[in-house]
């Protein structure tokens, strides 16, 4: 197991290198960052200074090598619009994003799996129809629309929660629910399918015929086996979660990396864009590793070379 984790970690730099190269190329393909960052009233001196600062006066391969050299030192350069290093700027915002993504994911997993089990247990009954319908509706509703509805109802009508902003737990509720709504329906549907399939498996039938209660069979035989499909799906969807957090952060004025990224792309704050994409890539890569390790722990049959 430890060897597997180490091998996976050894490949992490390669993944990140590819991400870095892709970001680097895209940022230069979409126009000269100097032209975009500097005001229309820019002076030639300012253009020269910024061009030198971003090493844009060097040939492209040299630029990339300089970028890699600095990257090895964890240095993305100074942010153009913030005071301070790009890495520091991203680091300051990372906590808010992790908090939101973590809460959203936890909510989606708990509610999604619980809903899926309920659907399977009361299959083709009213409960199943109701939860499945909500799941499909939730899946087809865009985040920004759901966000506006939630704000309207819980903040403006009921006055239970604040409309937006960052602060105590009450501020986290609506953004987390909005983010959870992106993934939850899938968790519900996958859990439902997995549980229903398992219900007709031999070992489940045997367990029931031995006289085990339905609840007991569900808890000890079905659920442990149903977790892995959900986890596989989760591994694929970490990227969706991060993308969803960008929209959610914008709706709720949440000071996370997602909004920082959008803003920095608009201004072509190259160091911050590179650092943000890098941070998100690390999160996705590490989350996938955690998911894979969990799957191996749960199901020893899964053996990865």
């Amino acid at each position: 197991m430890a060897g597997y984790i180490l091998r996976r970690l050894a490949f992490l730099p390669l993944t990140l290198l590819i991400v870095a190269l892709a970001t680097f190329i895209v940022l230069r393909l979409t126009g000269n960052p100097v032209d975009i960052f500097l005001d229309i009233n820019r002076t030639p001196e300012q253009v020269t200074a910024l061009t030198q600062r971003l090493h844009l006066d060097q040939p492209l391969p040299v630029q990339f090598l300089i970028f890699l050299r600095d990257l090895l030192h964890g240095d993305f350069g100074e942010s153009l619009q913030f005071s301070g290093s790009a890495a520091g700027v991203v680091w300051d915002r990372l906590g808010a994003t992790l908090q939101l993504a973590g809460a959203g994911l936890a909510l989606a997993l708990i509610l999604g799996i619980a809903g899926g089990i309920a659907c399977a247990v009361w299959r083709d009954r009213a409960v199943d129809a109701a939860i499945s319908s909500i799941a499909v509706a939730g899946q087809s509703m865009p985040s920004f629309w759901l966000g506006i509805l939630l704000i309207e109802f819980f903040a403006l009508q009921l006055h239970w929660l604040p409309t937006s902003g960052y602060g105590d737990l009450r501020h986290l509720v609506l953004p987390a629910v909005t983010l959870a709504a992106i993934l939850m329906p899938n968790f519900t549907l996958i859990t439902r399918t997995a549980v229903i399939e398992l219900m007709s498996e031999q070992f489940v039938v045997t367990g029931r015929s031995k006289g085990l209660s339905r609840a007991r069979v569900l808890a000890t035989h079905i659920l442990p086996n149903a977790v892995n499909p959900v986890l596989s799906f989760l591994g694929i969807q970490i990227g969706t979660l991060m993308a969803g957090s960008i929209v959610t952060e914008t709706i709720y004025a949440w000071p996370g990396v997602g909004r920082l990224l959008i803003n920095s792309i608009g201004h072509r704050d190259v160091p911050v864009v590179e650092a943000s994409v890098f941070a998100i890539a690390i999160i996705i890569a590490l989350s996938n590793l955690v998911v894979d390790v969990l799957q191996m722990l749960i199901d020893p049959r899964i053996h990865r070379g």
Partner: peptide, 18 residues
């Protein structure tokens, strides 16, 4: 001075008195 980038959220925060 708070940043609220989304227009409808901004209006909601005004109407809610935040």
């Amino acid at each position: 001075i708070r940043t609220i980038p989304d227009g409808s959220t901004r209006v909601a925060s005004l109407v809610a008195g935040e």
